[in-house]
Design a binder for these strands. Sequence first.
DNA 1: AGCACGCCGACT
DNA 2: GTCGGCGTGCTC
Length: 841
Amino acid sequence: MLNYLSLNTSVAFLNLLAQYNKMNTTYFAEIILPLSLDGTFTYHLSETDLQQIKIGQRVSVPFGTQKLYTGIVHSIHQNKPELYKTKAIHAFLDDEPLVTQTQINFWEWIANYYVCSLGDVFRNAFPSALKLESQTFVRLINPNYETIEELNDYEFLVFEALKLREIISVEEAALIVDDKSAIPTLKLLIDKGIIRLDEKLSEKYTPKIDNYVRLHPDLKGNEQQFMEVLNQLSKAPKQREALLQLITLETQLQDKLLKVADFVKQGATNAVIKSLAEKGAVEIYQNQTSRVENEEKDITEISQLTLKQTEAFNQIKEEFKTKSTVLLHGVTSSGKTEIYLKLIEQVIAKRNKVLYLLPEISVTTQIVHRIKKHFGDKVGVYHSKFNQNERVELWQKTLNGDFDIIIGPRTALFLPFDNLGLVIVDEEHESSYKQMDIKPFFHARDMAMLLGGMMNAKTLLGSATPSAESYYNAKNGKYGYIELNERFGQIKLPEINLIDLKKAQKEKEITEDISHTLRDEIFEQLNHKKQVILFQNRRGYAPIMECKSCGHTPECPNCDVSLTYHKFSNQLKCHYCGYAQAKPLRCVSCGSHELNTKGIGTEQIEQQIQTIFPEAKVRRMDVDAMRGKFAYEKLIEDFENKEIDILIGTQMITKGFDFGNVNFVGVIRADSLLNFPDFRAHEKAFQLLTQVAGRAGRRDEQGKVLIQSFQPEHQILQNVTTYSYAPTMKDILYERKEFLYPPYSRLIKLRFKHKNKERLDKTAEQLVILLKSNFDARCLLGPEAPSIGRINNLYITDVMIKIRPNQSPQKVKDLIRAKINQLHTIAAFRSVRIDVDVDPV
DNA sequence: AGCACGCCGACT
DNA sequence: GTCGGCGTGCTC
C-alpha cells in the first residue's frame, strides 16, 4: 500500500518535474523586424523550432492583428518576458542564415550610433525582395451556405467565384466587384461565416531561367555515334554546319554554358537547333542564369607601378603596420587606382576579401571596368540601379564567398561578406557617402572604417581633395598620411585661370553667359578636335521665373521654393517634391505676357552654346538627361566615340569621368558654390572646382581650365587656381576651431517635420527647453528653419547640437533619446516627426 | 512603420 | 442619413 502510494506520488512527482522542466526549458528568440520601433521582438520557440533555429536566419512572424513580417533571428534565450504574451514563429524561410553574426553586430552598432532603431537598419540593409510581406487571401469556409437570397450582388459574385476556386486574393476579389466595395463586401461575408481571411507569404525573388544548348551527352566522347549522326545530316547542310559550329564553340567556351539565344546570335537558327534536338544530336536544357555575371573574359596583368607609385605603395604598407586607416592624398590622375589594384592583389593573395566603395555614379564607369579587367569574375559589383532580383543574387553570391572584391556605393557596405582584409573608400570627401533620405543616416566612409575594424581589416581613404575631417585626422597622426602630388607620366596639372564676369559685362566681352575668352578657347579646342566639358551646377533652364511687370515668381504649392523652368519639357518643376506644371502663358498674378527668367541652368547653357557653335554636337549630363538604367553608360560611350563635342554637366561630371581627349574644362559660374549658407561651403567649393579642373588634360598634354565668376578675388577661387590645398585647409580648420565645428566638435542635427507650423515650432522649442540644462549656449542652437522651410507640405525646423571633444557622444545620444521619449509622452508633441541626424553633412 | 479603432465634413 | 477623412494608440 505504502509502496503503491509512494510509486503513485513519485509518478506524479516525475510528471510535475517534467512539466516544470519543460516550462523551464522554454526558449525564446529575439527577432529583428523591419519596423521603426526600438529593439527586437520576442517569440517563443517550440521544440522543433529549437532544432532548426539559427542566428541570422530569416523567419516570418505574426505581428499586430494579422500581418506576417519577415524578420531575422537576433538571439536565443530563456528569459520569459513578463509584460506581454509571446507569439510563436510562423515559419522558417530558409535552412541556413542569410545574415552573419558580424552583420547583426554591425547593424546594432549603426542603430546605436545613428540613433535609430535596429529595424530601420535592417530595412535598409537587407534586399527588399527577401523581405516577404504577407498578402491577404480570401478562403471559402462555408460552401453550403444556403440563404443566397440574403446576399447582395457583390457578395454573391465573390461567393460564386470562391465556389470555383476555394482561395482568391483580396486583389482578385477587388477585380470581381469594384475596388471601393471590395473590403465592405468581404466584411459582410465574414460576418455571415461564409469566408475567412488568410495571410500568405509569397517569395518576391524569382530566379532567371534560360534555355541552353549543348552537344547531346550520348554523343560526348563517343566518336562513332557522333560520326553516324553527322552522316545522317548530310542532306541537311545547315544542321550539319550548326553542329560543327557548336563543337567549336564548346571548345572555345571551355566549361561555360551556351545559351540558345547566344548560339542563334552566332548564326544558327532556332529551327535548325530544334531539328538537331529532335534528332538527338544536341540537347536543349534549362538552367538558371546569373543576373550578375561578369562579361569580362581576358584578364590582364596589373601594370608596373611607377617609381612614385611604388614609393606610395610601400609607405601605405608601412603605415598599415601601426595604423588601421591610411589617407592617400593624390592629385587627379596620379594613378591612385594602380596602387589600389596592387593592394587588392596582395590582400586577396592572402585569401582575404576587399570592399571597394565608390560614390554612386562612379560605379557605372571605367574604374569598375578596370578592376574587372584584372580580377574577372571574382569581382562583385553592386549598383543602386540594380533591380531587386539582381540584388538578391549579389547578396547570395557574396554570402557564398564567390567574390574576392565587392565594388559598390554606400549600400554595398551591407553585403554579407566576411573576412575582409581591406576596405578602400575612393573619393572619400564625397558627400554622397552620407545617406540623407532614409534612415539610418549613416556615413559610409565612417562605417567602412568601423566594419573594417570589426573584421581586422585596414581602411584606405583616397582623394585628390580630402575632407577636412580626414585631413585633420591624418595630420594628427590618427590616420597614416601619404601624398602623391605628381600626375601620372609627369604631365603638369591643368592651368587654371579666372574670368571676371563683372569686367566682361562692363566691357561687353560676353554673349549672354559665355565670355568671349571662354568662347574663343572652346573654339580653339574644337579646331584641334578636342572635346570640351562645361560645368554648371544647376539643372533645368532657369531656377527662377519672374513676371516683368509685377515681379511675381511662381512657387511650388507644396514647398517653399520657386519653380525651376525646364525649357525642354516646357514645364515649371519643383526639384524638391517633383511637382510639375506646364509653363504658364501669362503671369498668374497680373496676367502680363512678359515672363522673364532669372539665373541659369544646364539647359540654358546648352542652348547658348549651341547658338554660338551651331555645328558642334552638344550634349547635357544632369539627372534630367540621365533617366533610365543605361543612360549614363550610353553617354560615356558616345563621349568616348567622340560623338559629343561639348558636354555640359552638373557635378555629375566630376565623378569617375576621365577621358584622354579632353584638354579643356570651363566653369560657367562659380559664384553659387561660394555663397552657400553652410559651414562646409568653402570646403565643398574648393573640392568641387578642383575635381572639375581635374577632368582636363589627363593623358598627353597639360590641360586648361577657365572659371567664370563675379568674384574672382575670392580666396577660395585664388587657392583653386594655385592648387593650394594645404593653405585652404589651414584656413578652413582655423574657422572650424573658432566656431566649434567639426572636426573640433561633433554635430547632431535634430530635424523636426510637421504640416502644422505652430505645432512644429512649439515642439522644437519644448525639446530645446528639455535639453537646455545639459548644454551651454554655444552648443545648443535653434530651433531655426532651414533655407527651405517647407518640403512636400511639411514644415521643417532644425536644432543643432555640438558635442565638445571632452564630452561623451554616447551620453549625449542617450540623453537625446531620453528627452525625445519624454517629449513624446505628451500627445500634442507626439505627431511631430523628429529625425536625429548624427554627423550631418 | 503599418494598421485598427474612433470621431467630424461632403455626398448619394 | 452614410462614406471616408486622418488623429491616436498598439504591436513581441
